[in-house]
Amino acid sequence: MSFLTLEPIRLLLYLVGVCAFVGANAAYLVLAERKGAGRIQRRPGPNEAGYAGLLQPVADGIKLLAKQIMVPPGTDALLFRAAPLMVMAPSLMCLAVIPFGANLVARDLNIGLLLVFSFGSINVMALMLGGWASRNKFAIISSARVVSQNVAYEIPMLLVVITMLMVTGTMNLNEIIHQQAGWFWNWNVFKVWVNPLMPVTFVIFFICMLAETNRAPFDMAEAESELVAGAFTEYGGMGFGVFFMAEYANIVVGCCLATILFLGGWQSPFGALSGVLGPLWFLLKMYALIFTVIWIRWTFPRTQFYSLLNLSWKILIPLSLFTLVLTGVMIKII
């Protein structure tokens, strides 16, 4: 045991663990999405490779890996190659501070929340560079959309996070979870005595999370019926595969964060059984959120770009500002 508690060994284990977690999630969330879409559309979904299609991600992965990564002439080859890495690396970094259980966290940082959001913002830059380097008109339109969309939704999201900071008083994610111990009404989303608008705050956070990860109905960046594949139009093989995986990795990070901030993280809903079963509760909540994300995608059409921006600037930002002020007032009074 003493060997395992050595700091470098521990870090190495966590690094491998986080990479494996992201990889497995990205691969199998694609399958889950396709299966989920199949259920929604009354068809079986992929079911040929392996039992019930369980080997489909492996087959997809082999296919993508076997393909040549084309760098079209005239592109900025360096940026073109760097963009997929830049979109993947930050989400891996974010997972380093996510506590899956009481002790199951790679780095228990005091500024965990800040770190997640600082790395999370790199995503937009990577997409923009990828689109810009592609030398493709569809990709450039997509890049312009990504930037304006992510900038617009970063603001209400951060306002919500500030609200949560005021409520919890800490940026340490494990600390935030510890504060939500007990029965499920102690979760932040139900703490209406702290702020009556807490459920609304959660919904704002969830919508912003959808928009930040470019998921339907806010998938302006990809918008395949308009922009072919948006910023990824010129990517093929694993270049495209990494973008694709990063999308799911970002969803995982976003849903993890929503779980931690609002749904009590690894706390059980009944006040007991959160110790050893903690990771289970955490994953349960996270995958429930991810399923909601998938469900929304296959149910709604895409929004218009300007109504998307209107939603942010005219509704979400004023609303989140209001909750911020309200929380401040409530904290002062109580």
């Binding site: 559309q41 019926s225 296959w298 149910t299």
Partner: peptide, 16 residues
């Protein structure tokens, strides 16, 4: 049309 608008599911019901 729904595909154009980014809604994938209706076409499968329509084709049914």
């Amino acid at each position: 049309l729904l595909l154009d608008l980014g809604g994938f599911t209706p076409i499968l019901y329509a084709f049914d």
